[in-house]
Simulated assay, not measured.
Amino acid sequence: MTNITRKRADPGRVLALVLTLGLALVLVGGAARAVDLAVPSNAQLTLERISARDSYGVATGPALDGRVPTTAAEGQVARRSWRIDAQGLSTLQLMAPLRDQLVDAGYEILFECAAADCGGFDFRFALEVIPAPDMHVDLFDFRYLAARHDDRDGRVSHAVLLTSRTETAGFVQVVQIVPADEETPQSAGGDRPALGPGDSAAPEEGDTPLPVAVALERNGHAVLSDLAFETGSSNLGPGEFASLAALADYLLADPDRRIALVGHTDAVGGLDGNIALSKRRAASVLERLATDLGVPRSQMEAEGVGYLAPFTTNLSPEGREINRRVEAVLLNTE
């Protein structure tokens, strides 16, 4: 499978008023063309990842009893996110124009919901969401939409939209799944090498993430960026986390390799409570690696430092979400 990733636009770059997203193939006179979605002129592309042949789980109903109904969509999968710096935007204001354009293009809305109506925590953490800071999702203020289009040849395309906001910015994630072409799709701006499954979001120079194994051996640690923890909770969300799979592969390849899983929190609450919470989070990750992925417990230990080692500011919701994390630290194997 060929992937192309564009990570975080140049801060000075602003998208044009109409951005060709290629959200689906729509037949016009028997020929396929891409749908053009209008986005605000101040929308900044934060991440673009395109996979030539991939699959994506499209949620088609609310979470019930901890489960979210999904349908597997296959083909070219493009994941994109935008940040819109503006105060007072609602999630409906962000979603409605995109929804209307999909409907005008002949899409059928499969499911749409807002926050609690979606199923809250269980629904949010069943979704594949681009990690912060490129995408931000407020558990109590987000909207979701899934849509489908069938062309005259019976080919199926899907579009999945997710919107959320902070006090100062709106966030939009668009996932498109269209019939696979023989040629590898190109992301806007060129051929930057793609990130594979299990890549770490710990930034290096130029904000380019490193794969987990490379980050461990080059930097001595790797942020497991796709893990999700709610403030005050030590529960690791459901799902198969690519970073854990990559970490498990790394450890299982050499029984002499050992890591410390180190939990971190945001700065909400007292130090003692946050240290205890961060250690429970690390222990939760260790348990998942041992129980589900078969990593020997002798190769791992779990520690927690609370809010003493922030990755970024705790003064914004996005910063606090980034700081709630677990890192793998490579230990001396000699």
Rank of each mutant, 00 (worst) to 15 (best):
S164P: 15
F142G: 05
T168M: 07
L139G: 09
R148S: 12
T163E: 02
V172Q: 07
A169E: 06
R152M: 13
A169W: 03
R165V: 03
L145D: 01
F171R: 00
D153R: 14
R165T: 06
H149N: 15
R143I: 01
F140L: 10
L139A: 15
H158Q: 13
S164Q: 10
V172L: 15
T168Q: 14
F171L: 00
S157N: 03
V174I: 15
A147M: 07
V174G: 10
D151C: 11
D150T: 14
V174H: 13
V172F: 06
Q176P: 00
S157H: 00
D138E: 02
L162W: 01
T166K: 10
R165A: 13
R148L: 07
V172E: 03
G154D: 09
T168A: 13
Q176G: 08
V175N: 08
A147E: 05
V156P: 05
V174Q: 14
L139P: 12
R155L: 11
V175L: 01
S157R: 05
L145I: 09
V174A: 12
A146F: 07
R165C: 01
A159W: 07
A147T: 04
S157Q: 08
F140W: 03
A169G: 08
R152C: 12
V156H: 10
D153A: 11
R155Y: 06
R155Q: 15
Q173P: 09
R148A: 11
D150N: 05
F171Y: 09
R155K: 08
D151E: 14
A169V: 03
T166Q: 14
V160W: 03
G154V: 02
D150P: 05
T168P: 00
T163Y: 02
L161P: 04
F142I: 00
L161N: 07
Q176F: 08
R165P: 01
S164T: 13
L139V: 06
I177L: 08
R143M: 03
I177C: 13
V160I: 14
R148G: 09
